[in-house]
C-alpha cells in the first residue's frame, strides 16, 4: 500500500460525526433500533425475519443516497482515495465480514450506539478493534513496509 497524505479536517469531521450521531438518535426515537451498519445489513441479508426487513432496506437505501445528496448540494462526490490494492481490499472485506458477524457489530453499532448507551460489551468490543486496527496498520506500513 502506498500511504497518501490527507488533510486534517476537524470541523468537517466533527459536523459529519454529529450527523451520524443524530441519525442514530432519530432511528432510536422513531423505531427503537440501533443504527449499526453490520446489524442492519446482516438483517436485510436474511438473519432477520422477512417482516422485519423493510425498514432495514429503507435505511440502506438512505445510506447509499448520502453521497448523492452531497453531490447534489456541493457539486462533487465525497473524496474517496483507496491506497490499497484490489486483492487486499477483498481480503480485508472478507475479514471484516467474519469479524463483525462473530463480534456482533462494527464502528457504528458498538463504537457509536453501544458506547453512547455505555454498554460495557460495546466498550470492550470498540477498544479491541481500535487496538487491532492500529496494530494492523502499523505492521503493514512500518514492519512489512507497504
Amino acid at each position: 500500500m502506498i500511504p497518501v497524505e490527507t488533510d486534517f479536517t476537524p470541523w468537517q469531521s466533527l459536523a459529519g460525526g454529529s450527523l451520524i450521531g443524530l441519525a442514530s438518535v432519530l432511528l432510536m426515537l422513531m423505531l427503537g433500533r440501533i443504527m449499526g451498519a453490520t446489524g442492519i445489513l446482516a438483517g436485510a441479508l436474511g438473519s432477520a425475519p422477512r417482516t422485519d426487513r423493510g425498514w432495514r432496506i429503507a435505511v440502506l437505501a438512505g445510506m447509499v443516497s448520502g453521497p448523492l445528496a452531497v453531490l447534489a448540494l456541493t457539486g462533487q462526490f465525497p473524496e474517496i482515495e483507496v491506497p490499497v490494492s484490489m486483492p487486499m481490499l477483498l481480503i480485508g472485506g472478507f475479514t471484516v465480514g467474519i469479524g463483525v458477524t462473530f463480534g456482533s457489530g462494527c464502528t457504528s453499532g458498538h463504537g457509536v450506539c453501544g458506547m453512547a448507551r455505555l454498554s460495557r460489551r460495546s466498550i470492550a468490543a470498540t477498544v479491541t478493534f481500535m487496538v487491532t486496527t492500529a496494530l494492523t496498520v502499523f505492521v503493514i506500513r512500518h514492519v512489512l513496509g507497504g
Binding site: 451520524i20 449499526g36 451498519a37 453490520t38 445489513l41 440502506l60 445510506m63 447509499v64 443516497s65 448520502g66 453521497p67 448523492l68 462526490f77 465525497p78 474517496i80 483507496v82 491506497p83 490499497v84 487486499m88 481490499l89 481480503i91 480485508g92 472485506g93 472478507f94 475479514t95 471484516v96 465480514g97 467474519i98 469479524g99 463483525v100 458477524t101 462473530f102 463480534g103 456482533s104 462494527c106 464502528t107 457504528s108 458498538h110 460489551r121 470492550a124 468490543a125 470498540t126 479491541t128 478493534f129 481500535m130 487496538v131 487491532t132 486496527t133 492500529a134 496494530l135 494492523t136 496498520v137 503493514i140
Partner: peptide
C-alpha cells in the same frame, strides 16, 4: 466470541481501510 470477532474485524479494517458503516454509504459513489 465478542472479543475475537472484534479483533478480527480490526485486522480487516486495518487491511482495507473501509468499515461497514463507511463502505455502505460509499456505494452511492
Amino acid at each position: 466470541r465478542l472479543l475475537g470477532g472484534s479483533a478480527i474485524f480490526g485486522i480487516g479494517w486495518g487491511i482495507a481501510g473501509f468499515c461497514p458503516g463507511g463502505a455502505l454509504p460509499a456505494l452511492g459513489t
